[in-house]
């Protein structure tokens, strides 16, 4: 089964998924916080990039800009070749919904809804036809190894299982870019290991483009490409 989605539409092109050119982010507080400086970053399709750096260095700020949750103060950001600085709020929301998948440290699951509903919600704003949503959700849940938990409520799952539900939600609509902000920050080391193995699998087998923020040196070392942020400056390792 070939599922229509942005990732398959882009197959012909060899342009990078992410292209950041001289991106700055200054928070307008007193005193102003210069969270990102002179960021130039290109991520090709299918790449797995780990972002590390000390607390407060600007990792989450970078991820929010990549996910169109935040705007650069200056500079250019091309996502799938689309110049996002031209987009109004509405268009940013739709590009975000269709091309980006998010995995958060705190899972962000709706505890009053079933696991299946939680994954389906990832598709309702994306113009994915109603009839496709459930098969996609079930496929994604099976992909993360939770095919047997579709009718559960998230608050009855373990931390690792919850994060798997969140990952299923983030990949069910076939995004161009999967962004994970400390996805294992709330998990013990054994569970962290299995989640990282899942990410590697999604990268190697499914060819997903991944950006994963982590504090964990061991985790960061496993990624094929690692970038470091210190005081808002980005360096390749």
């Amino acid at each position: 089964m070939t599922l229509p989605g942005p990732a398959t539409v882009m197959i012909e092109s060899d342009q990078p998924v992410v292209e950041l050119i001289d991106v700055e982010r200054v928070f307008d507080t007193t005193p102003p916080v210069h969270a990102l400086r002179e960021i130039n970053l290109s991520i090709a399709e299918g790449e797995y990039v780990s972002v590390s750096g000390p607390s407060g260095s600007g990792k989450s700020t970078l991820l929010n800009i990549l996910g169109l949750l935040d705007r650069p103060t200056s500079g250019t950001y091309l996502l799938d070749g689309i110049d996002t600085s031209d987009l109004n709020d509405r268009r940013r929301a739709s590009v975000r919904g269709q091309r980006v998948g998010f995995v958060f440290q705190a899972f962000h699951l709706l505890n009053t809804r079933s696991v299946l509903d939680n994954v389906i919600i990832g598709q309702i704003y994306n113009r994915i036809p109603r009839s496709e949503r459930k098969p996609r959700a079930v496929a994604a849940l099976e992909r993360v190894g939770l095919g047997h938990r579709v009718d559960f409520r998230p608050d009855r799952l373990s931390g690792g299982e919850r994060q798997r539900v969140a990952i299923a939600r983030a990949i069910a609509h076939s995004p161009s870019l999967l962004l994970c902000d400390e996805p294992t920050g709330n998990l013990d080391s054994g569970t962290t290991e299995s989640i990282m193995a899942l990410f590697e699998d999604l990268h190697r087998v499914d060819g997903l483009t991944l950006v994963v923020i982590t504090h964990d040196e061991a985790v960061s070392a496993r990624a094929p490409r690692t970038v470091n942020i210190i005081d808002g400056y980005l360096t390749e390792q």
Partner: peptide, 16 residues
């Protein structure tokens, strides 16, 4: 608020 943030991340516009 968390759910609202999540829905925005999933592509919901302000109007939605």
């Amino acid at each position: 608020i968390g759910e609202i943030g999540l829905r925005r991340a999933l592509g919901a516009g302000r109007r939605h």
